[in-house]
Design a protein around this nucleic acid. Structure first.
Lengths: 141, 141
DNA sequence: ATACCTGCAAAGTCTTTGCCTTAGG
DNA sequence: CCTAAGGCAAAGACTTTGCAGGTAT
């Protein structure tokens, strides 16, 4: 396997984190799962449930995000974002990871072809997509 | 203007919603703003702050989502999702809007070109993107 | 030895609901 | 008139933090 737990632990060590039981178990668990997990998913996972506190998992995730080993998906605020669905308008967004400013991108979206393919391959219906670009805006950098 | 408040209100009426002051103000506000807004953004917006309760805005957004006039961005759970950042692996996701199941998509991501363009056009640095497809999975439909 | 981690419990923040009143159709 | 919508206040859900004690280095 290309990404062993051991090699990720090494990345953590290089980033200055201590090798603790909780860290090992967390990384193993995230590596086993092939899709994103919530804090609850992780803290209640059999690997972790009896082994460490939810606050520990939370703080580990925080550190791992700081070190760019873990990413939190979605817009980076706690609150939910809403947008109007207007006929003939599809919006993708460009978001500053630092100040949080969100702007709409006008560029034609290059994803529709893949979306069609997915519809036939996977049997999903009512497909739509969301595409967000994140980065540091000129002001913040 | 192509999308007048009036025309959206008509969509709402067609969908069975009553024409109330709060609805009008909410739609106007969302139409003015050209990027997604949080419940707090909306409820505290000068247009709405003194005019209606936050719970009202919340319930309006709910109804508008039911009627597919508004969309809530991001993964549709309350909790945040985390994923490992592994070298050489970029994942896009396919999510069932009904049961919430998330699966990773292997297909080569068609977005990198646009990402490069954005970097030069906008001056954003450290760009990356997230791409999610939503739909109803075979089991749920 | 000491700076970093952990567990527990409490506080915060944003969302969601109950209940009664108001008003649109 | 009848039912959907609104206001207020309280409850929920998930996240985040303070502090005292434990542990990797």
């Amino acid at each position: 396997m290309q990404h062993s737990t051991e090699s990720i632990i090494q990345r953590c060590r290089d980033a200055g984190l201590r090798r603790t039981k909780a860290l090992e178990l967390l990384l193993e668990t995230m590596l086993e799962s092939h899709s994103p997990m919530t804090l609850a998913d992780l803290a209640e996972h059999p690997n972790l449930a009896e082994q460490c506190d939810r606050a520990t998992v939370f703080r580990l995730l925080q550190r791992l995000m700081d070190k760019a080993i873990v990413r939190r998906l979605g817009l980076h605020e706690r609150a939910a974002y809403f947008t109007l669905l207007l006929e003939g308008r599809h919006q993708d967004f460009l978001i500053c990871s630092d100040c949080g400013k969100i702007e709409a991108i006008d560029a034609p979206c290059p994803v529709h072809k893949l979306e069609k393919e997915l519809a036939t391959k996977t049997g999903f219906t009512k497909l739509y997509h969301e595409l967000e670009f994140f980065g540091i805006c000129p002001k913040c950098s």
